[in-house]
Amino acid sequence: MIACWSCHKEAGPSPFCSACGELQPARPRDAFQVFDLSPRYHLDLAVLEKSWRERSKKLHPDKFVRAGARQRRFALEQTTLLNQAYKELKSPLARAELILRSNGYSTPTAEAGKAGAGEKLPLEFYEEVMVDREALDEAKAEGPEAVQALASQVLTRRDATLAIIDRAFADWERSGDAAALGPAEPELAKLRYYARFVDEVEGRPHD
């Protein structure tokens, strides 16, 4: 279906042509495809990391220093795609969003200057956010210990949210039914909020 640039035979899905072994240009693939994995939320990160290293060793531009300009460009494309996919799969949040998106759920995409705005959250959660914000101001006035106490309180709630997400994805992994992911969708928005809140508490600008 996709012809190899070098031998013009069918190249196959791997970065290297299945017929002649030449490096191919990067084609748009999602993070799971890049790692030849079926979509799963519960990933063994140590295995993923090992796979990333092995793939880097084959694809990295440093391995094509003596090759032609075309192969060097493909190596850059392939390694960029690999690094992006690795970054995405490493993060539980990004991984969960990717699975939701490919199962027909909408997840907010970041837009310039509107980090976090426009997310659909349950009304009670907005109240929780307001209470947290006030508590943070008070804690800041009180001192670092109070801020830490608030942070660990928020982290406890985050863990509860993670547990719900975990269950929903486990259900989905068992049944393969996209509807099982439903409960995870609003929880992911909460998770993003918790991440930002903790960043803010720790004085760390969020990405």
């Binding site: 690094n83 992006q84 690795y86 970054k87 995409t109 970041a110 837009e111 310039a112």
Partner: peptide, 20 residues
């Protein structure tokens, strides 16, 4: 500043961001 690539990202790396 809208951060697109955080420090300590492994290179080569790319990121796309949408603006309007």
């Amino acid at each position: 500043v809208e951060k697109i690539l955080p420090r300590n990202s492994t290179i080569p790396v790319a990121m796309q961001q949408r603006f309007t």
